[in-house]
Design a protein around this nucleic acid. Structure first.
Lengths: 136, 136
DNA sequence: AGTGCTGGTCTCTTTTTGAGACTAACATAT
DNA sequence: ATATGTTAGTCTCAAAAAGAGACCAGCACT
């Protein structure tokens, strides 16, 4: 019965959940989603899901990210608890980035979305072509 | 057997899929993911998954989006084939936005991610608190 | 004649991102 | 001994994107 209520609940309620007044603006779900909805997060998560990487390896793996944005995105992913950063006292020092348990947990659904993109990028590209042709 | 090969394939390969030289830079999957990895797309998809909305309704539903970004995000979602835009010849004219089949298809995995965020935003917020306390 | 509603566009300012030089400490090559 | 490369960044400045808010046309209602 409670389950029924949950099912009937408007999907938007999930976005509002936890913000008493039904206010979308300061919503914890948005807060979390926006942390991973940026240009580089999903790509770096995808890389680190494969195996841990060092800073320079990631830079070579993703050649069109700037060093500045790589630093910053990794920092943000670490702050949100998805990524673990470990410094090894080699000379010169090396830093390894790996997914935490929380990161692996989040990567599950993220990977579903990436797989959808793999299967459907043809449809999306076709839609764009049609749209661009129609408006000029 | 083919399934085994797919399973063994590096996860990053999905991101590279289709770009012959293994080049991540112009990859169709990135192209699609970046179309929905921006500040407002997932929120508007969530709203339109509930039911079709008119422009002004969306604006009131998401009070902190600027009119300019609402126009632009809806335009981009329409271009990628997720959203249908229909103009009704009322006075003044009204415009209704709704999900297409492709949009509903994409919303499946997206919604999984949003649900993850709902379940885990506590952990993320806690991680941020710990991180911020540790570095000052 | 004035006001309001519609779904936008235009301009200006602030924020975010990108490109690239610069750092320090050590290893290796010349 | 001196030059060069490696590491993981930071710093500065330019370019792009986003936000704030004025403005628009067409019509209804008062």
């Amino acid at each position: 019965m409670d389950g029924k209520i949950v099912n009937l609940r408007s999907k938007l309620e999930i976005y509002k959940a936890g913000s008493g007044g039904g206010n979308l603006a300061d919503c914890p779900v948005r807060d979390v989603i926006q942390g991973i909805s940026n240009k580089w997060s999903s790509l770096l998560m995808e890389a680190l899901a494969e195996k841990p990487y060092r800073f320079g390896e990631l830079r070579r793996l993703v050649p069109d990210i700037s060093q500045r944005m790589l630093t910053q995105t990794l920092h943000d992913l670490q702050r949100d608890g998805y990524v673990h950063r470990e410094v090894f006292p080699t000379k010169p020092p090396s830093v390894e980035y790996s997914l935490t348990d929380l990161g692996r947990s989040m990567f599950g659904p993220l990977h579903q979305l990436i797989q959808w993109a793999e299967l459907n990028h043809g449809a999306v590209r076709e839609a764009r072509k049609v749209f661009d042709a129609a408006e000029g």
